[in-house]
Amino acid sequence: MLFVHGFGCDQHMWRLVAPAFADEHRIVTLDLVGAGGSDPAAWDPRRYDSLDAYADDILGVVRELDLHDVVLVGHSVSAMTGLLAAVAEPSRFAALVLIGPSPRYIDDDGYRGGFSAADIEELLASLDSNYLGWSTAMAPVIMGNAERPALGEELTASFCRMDPEIARQFARVTFLSDCRDALPEVRIPTLVLQCREDVIAPVEVGQYVADAIPDARMVLLDATGHCPHLSAPDDTIAAMRDFLGSRVGAA
């Protein structure tokens, strides 16, 4: 199983869910380029100007580790990049678990994604305000401070922190993307995990994704927010187990 985190965070966000599958699956988690512990030198603004580059990176990991029958678990924007990867190289993938997916955030002629272009500009302004804390003085703290041993403390320092320029571009690429055309191309069983209240990916968007993918089902979790794998890990695990168990010969 390959777990891919979404915009704003890193692979630490899987720590309540991924271990539950470690007995029956090989677990692979990764930090997207620009996030978490990824090599800062790997970031190239020209390359990462569309979701395709992130999908390419996922395929790169799959090929490098020579993974087959992959169950890809993608959160938020990585639900879509994971889906793009699975469409590009279907032979490697066995199933998709999409947590809080949205193929398009901005409303569009008969489609409701929940946001306007102005809302996205507002998010970018919000990023600017909040990354004021990303100063050169903060860098050593973010890189890991030996005087702060507790996991919680460490996470406060590093989790959800990203170079402001990278965050800005990733936000733009994420929230301006449109992956609706890729949905019908998915050829593998797909689970959409949807929270009943999610300001980022509303229920109707999750339903749209489940309806557009040929072999997909949606499970509505009794949870709020955009990260059920953090706020309702047990329900998330149960729904995923149920989905994986229902597939004969699941890898």
Partner: peptide, 9 residues
């Protein structure tokens, strides 16, 4: 809305 997105992510 911008702050909601920031909150969620």
């Amino acid at each position: 809305v911008g702050s909601r997105l920031y909150y969620g992510t």
